[in-house]
């Protein structure tokens, strides 16, 4: 019996008593179905009501739209600078993401391989302090500081994201790298590789799963964050990222809720598209890091 993990677990219930298996299957399927309904239902309601006029929606909230009416979408795309906000969000996410993905593994590698030295030990503890500190305490002082540096803009936001992602990133990576066998790196160094060469030729391949975990976790955070953009990018509508744009509809279209739904839908759209194409990679990517930490 050399079945793979998944296979065997999938098969094992069959070997139990029939009644037991039936009950378990029934309960399991019921649980999954309820879960799916709960998850899909709000999304479904948002979707169908986006295509309705206000009148139609108030008559029948649950019915399918009579026709696919794209007026709402048109109005939002034309009047509200939607693509501009998507662009802002993309800029913030991609730039922060790239820097974080290059920068954090390198820093963590330096720390993980020098833990015996005092400086690195200090640095690690110092960065880990962030794990204990609730975000509320930092909010006002940091915004104050950014204002005095004249960085109340997208670049300031990016800089903060890079800084704030250090704690979790270093925590994940240091623990991941420390358990990697050091022998390969030593061999490379004997062959004359410098640390930098060793890192780019060898280490980076070993930590790839963790990099994907970090990229996904942080990208989700940067893309979806509301609080920091609200405090940093409130000087002009031009600076808004997608979550601010989205939140705005809470009051602006408070009556015309099909319009608000359309706004939510088109704000979710970029993420939905990415998820549809990469969901397998996203889930497995997150799991890769999760198993180790």
């Amino acid at each position: 019996m050399s079945a793979s993990t998944n296979n065997l677990q999938a098969k094992s219930p069959v070997l139990h008593k029939r009644g037991e298996t039936l009950i378990w299957h029934f309960l399991r399927n019921a649980l999954l179905c309820i879960g799916i309904v709960l998850i899909v239902m709000p999304m479904w309601l948002v979707l169908i009501n986006s295509f309705k006029t206000l009148e139609e929606a108030s008559q029948s909230f649950f019915a399918l739209p009579r026709s696919v009416n794209l007026d709402n979408v048109h109005e939002l795309l034309n009047g509200q600078n939607y693509f501009h906000h998507v662009g802002n969000s993309l800029l913030v996410t991609v730039v922060s993401m790239t820097v974080v993905a290059i920068f954090i593994p390198m820093v963590s590698y330096a720390i993980a391989r020098n833990m015996r030295r005092r400086y690195y030990k200090f640095l690690y503890t110092y960065i880990m302090l962030g794990l204990f500190i609730p975000s509320q305490i930092v909010l006002l002082p940091i915004v104050k500081q950014m204002a005095s540096l004249n960085m109340m803009n997208i670049w300031g936001l990016i800089l903060l994201y890079i800084t704030f992602s250090l704690t979790r990133g270093v925590f994940l990576f240091v623990n991941y790298i420390r358990v990697l066998p050091i022998e390969i790196e030593e061999a490379a160094q004997i062959d004359g590789c410098t640390v930098v060469q060793t890192y780019f030729r060898i280490v980076i391949h070993l930590i790839k799963p963790m990099i994907s975990t970090l990229v996904i976790m942080d990208a989700l955070w940067f893309w979806n964050d509301f609080q920091l953009p609200l405090f940093l990018l409130n000087r002009s509508r031009d600076l808004w990222t997608l979550p601010l744009f989205q939140y705005n509809f809470k009051t602006e279209y408070s009556f015309d809720y099909p319009m608000a739904f359309t706004a939510y839908l088109i704000s979710l759209l970029p993420m939905l598209v990415v998820y549809c194409f990469c969901q397998k990679y996203i889930i497995s990517g997150l799991t890769a890091g999760a198993v180790k930490s």
Binding site: I39, P42, L45, L220, N224, F226, A260, L268, Y275
Partner: peptide, 22 residues
């Protein structure tokens, strides 16, 4: 798996706004 993982993709603000309406 992909359905159950989907909520993790959306911002908390969007989720709160949508559920508020629901």
């Amino acid at each position: 798996k992909s359905v159950f993982f989907f909520p993790a993709m959306i911002s908390s603000v969007a989720i709160a706004l949508i559920w508020d309406q629901v």
